[in-house]
């Protein structure tokens, strides 16, 4: 255990990529569902890295349903994915992977590495929340106060080691003691599909819900309001906030196309034109191009827009059901 801790620490002290030439790379997790059943022939599911235009490189397992990706802010080679068979970790930017969980953990929907301590990682699973404090060397259940335990999304508070918010079948749950106990928060006991916060403005949080649109908190998740307009009764699978401009937000879900807000969530405009499928399950603002928004669709691959959704550019992965997308800065 001590050796592994030391190894992880060294990796963080000496990251393999120089930050001087920092560039953000786009990773997406893909579920090719067409004809997919467990035990069928190998299909190119799993993690992809964008190479430009419509070209993508596959990374790691080829037959793994991955639902979420997260990385340590200070070391892009340290990454976790939430997958059907557990929480997988790479220490070398995806060249090799380890399933860090065991038989007790399955159907992992989301993973969140704490930005202030990469050893502290939470996973949301269909049977509850698990956490590790040693970078995945050991895991334990962390469900005290969580009812029901089905959890789909989890997000660490970038400003506090103690705070973490989870979303499940009956709403949002807040922990202020590193997941040791949970209390309901938020206005509605509705299924929550995604939670996001902004590191630059840590008081601002968004949550996507089933049939209740987007929930917004401007006080670090203590109280929540509901986004108004056409978005308010939609099922929202993913929400995102621009890294450097917290007034710029996006949301997408079942048959929604993309909702974009340019005023910090006060108003939302729906964009459907030019999209073959309106089911959106991946969203990311491009750190390299300040106005570029990427989306991952459920069945028609990846697109990006540079005009706030007025037009879309196809970026490949035809037929793919994208479950998550994330920029990782090198």
């Amino acid at each position: 255990m001590m050796k592994k801790q030391l190894f992880l620490t060294l990796i963080f002290l000496f990251p393999t990529i120089s930050l001087v030439t920092a560039k953000s790379n786009l990773y997406v997790s893909v579920l090719i569902r067409e004809n997919y059943i467990v035990g069928a022939k190998n299909l190119p599911t799993g993690l992809y890295l964008w190479q430009g235009d419509t070209t993508w490189n596959h990374i790691g397992w080829k037959n793994l349903p991955i639902w979420s990706i997260d990385t340590a802010s200070e070391n892009p080679d340290y990454m976790f994915v939430a997958a059907g068979n557990g929480a997988l970790r790479t220490l070398d930017g995806g060249q090799s992977w380890k399933i860090t969980t065991d038989w007790r953990v399955t159907e992992v929907s989301d993973v969140s590495i704490h930005p202030l301590d990469h050893h502290l990682v939470y996973i949301a699973t269909s049977y509850g929340i698990w956490k590790t404090t040693d970078g995945g060397e050991s895991w334990r259940e962390s469900n005290n106060g969580l009812n029901p335990t089905f959890t789909q999304t989890i997000q660490c508070d970038a400003s506090s080691l103690q705070r973490v918010i989870a979303g499940g079948e009956e709403g949002l749950f807040l922990s202020t003691n590193q997941g040791e106990s949970w209390k309901p928060t938020g206005p509605l006991p509705v299924p929550v599909k995604d939670i996001i916060s902004n590191r630059q403005t840590p008081r601002l949080w968004l949550a996507g819900t089933e049939k209740h649109g987007v929930l917004i908190s401007r006080n670090q998740g203590k109280t929540w309001g509901t986004a108004e307009g056409d978005i308010q009764d939609q099922t929202i699978y993913k929400v995102t906030i621009h890294q450097n401009n917290p007034k710029l937000m996006a949301a997408g879900g079942y048959q929604t196309g993309v909702f974009i807000s340019r005023d910090g969530g006060q108003t939302w405009k729906q964009n459907k034109k030019g999209l073959k499928t309106l089911d959106i399950h991946g969203l990311a603002f491009d750190p390299n191009e300040k106005q570029r928004l990427w989306i991952g669709t459920m069945g028609d691959g990846v697109y990006f827009s540079e005009d706030f959704g007025k037009s879309w550019n196809y970026a490949g992965l035809s037929g793919a059901l994208v479950s998550d997308m994330k920029f990782i800065t090198r």
């Binding site: 467990v38 035990g39 397992w61 037959n63 793994l64 059907g84 068979n85 557990g86 038989w103």
Partner: peptide, 16 residues
């Protein structure tokens, strides 16, 4: 080769 563990009791019996 990376065999997936699956999500059913029979999958897990075969896998483990």
């Amino acid at each position: 080769y990376t065999p997936f563990r699956g999500d059913t009791e029979n999958h897990w019996a075969m896998y483990y």
